[in-house]
Design a protein around this nucleic acid. Structure first.
Lengths: 211, 211
DNA sequence: TTTATTCTCCTGATTTTTAGGTATTTTTTA
DNA sequence: TAAAAAATACCTAAAAATCAGGAGAATAAA
């Protein structure tokens, strides 16, 4: 268990935001903001020399992409928890930060209560989101609502085999069908997705979580 | 605020698990297990007629895939929170359940404390994982550790153009290069990713968040 | 039981990709 | 500045994919 105050670092490309957050957090008894940086290099260098319990991290930074930075920090010091503080409201970005090791995601307009709560949860090892972010995550994607072509069972099957890099020939052998049949399905898939070729097909299918 | 006891339904294809969970939860003062089902149809029919605050849901079900079921329930009754209780330890499955509207994910060997905690968090609208699951999520993917090829700037650029469904010809025109050059890059990409063709290339690149 | 959909297979021509190479010119970087 | 890496370009041939049609059989739905 933690007896000292939690050490917190803030990374944001707007110095004003850093100052604002410092102000907000200085009233907290069990927290201590020990550093603030406006770029990725700064925090990277800092964490290599100092122990930090938690980092409030912005995605948009001048030098390094916040997503990569997150992964880099986590790789070097697993014990350091990272909370993303960003304005991006796209669910894919949110999910990606979590996959990159972040312990939570807050929008910049979150309340101080939410921030406090997420910090507590994060240091406990939980993953935590602000209310608005939770909404975004559980809201069905645009992709899930619109423009998602209806595939038949066979088409789904063949789509995933194509995604594995298999040729029509080998798929045909695998399914005991004529290669010509596979070609037809392939053609229909390309038509249904309104794409130009398999490369785009796989990209779009992946984006729409159909793979 | 909730004044009544929370109504909970359990869905698992093993009746023993259902009974076990009922036992575990019957000591909780503020909870009430109101139903248990061993298939997807059962819970779907139930939620259409009865209000349920929270569902403990298994992924593996005899009739409907738990992932789809989750989305279906959430679509019909947003207020019903869903906690996934499963043995799948693949991070992609975990992430997918959350994208399908689940409020959390627990492995079946979780402690009763973790379960209790996640239930509380879930009804508050938070997303919550058991310790082990949190570890899985924050652990870097195999893909991220190994086999993530280093691409040059040009290669990245051409990769994304390929993903847009463009042919070597049109990419060449766009970049004022010889189509033969594009072919070389294409060849190198396929080599670096150790894949068989562009279809697989795009899939793998996407999986590794390189698109 | 009709109708509609899906799955199957076909022809034939054309385009694109893939798999081997080799080789020169720019950039980077040590 | 010398060496390494990246970007450029070319060649040959085979393999695979794409386009544009049609068309019969099996299933599912109305």
């Amino acid at each position: 268990m933690q007896t000292d105050r939690l050490t917190i670092a803030i990374v944001d490309d707007h110095p004003i935001v850093i100052e604002g957050l410092k102000m907000l957090l200085q009233n907290e008894e069990n927290l201590e903001v020990v550093a603030g940086f406006s770029d990725g290099e700064g925090i990277l260098a800092y964490t290599r020399l100092n122990k930090v319990d938690l980092i409030l991290l912005d995605i948009t930074l001048p030098d390094i992409n916040g997503m990569d930075l997150c992964r880099m920090i986590k790789k070097e010091s697993t014990a350091t928890m990272i909370l993303i503080l960003s304005n991006h409201t796209e669910r894919s970005i949110i999910m990606q930060t979590i996959q990159n090791g972040a312990s939570g995601y807050l929008l910049k307009n979150s309340s101080i209560d939410e921030l406090r709560n997420c910090i507590t949860e994060a240091v406990k090892g939980n993953i935590c989101f602000s209310k608005e972010v939770t909404d975004i995550i559980s809201r069905p994607t645009k992709n899930q609502l619109q423009g998602r072509p209806q595939l038949t069972r066979r088409e789904k099957q063949i789509l995933s085999l194509i995604a594995e890099g298999k040729t029509s020939q080998s798929i045909a052998t695998e399914l005991f069908l004529s290669p010509l049949t596979i070609d037809t399905h392939r053609k229909n898939l390309i038509q249904k997705f309104e794409v130009k070729n398999v490369a785009e097909l796989i990209r779009v299918a992946h984006q729409q979580h159909m793979l």
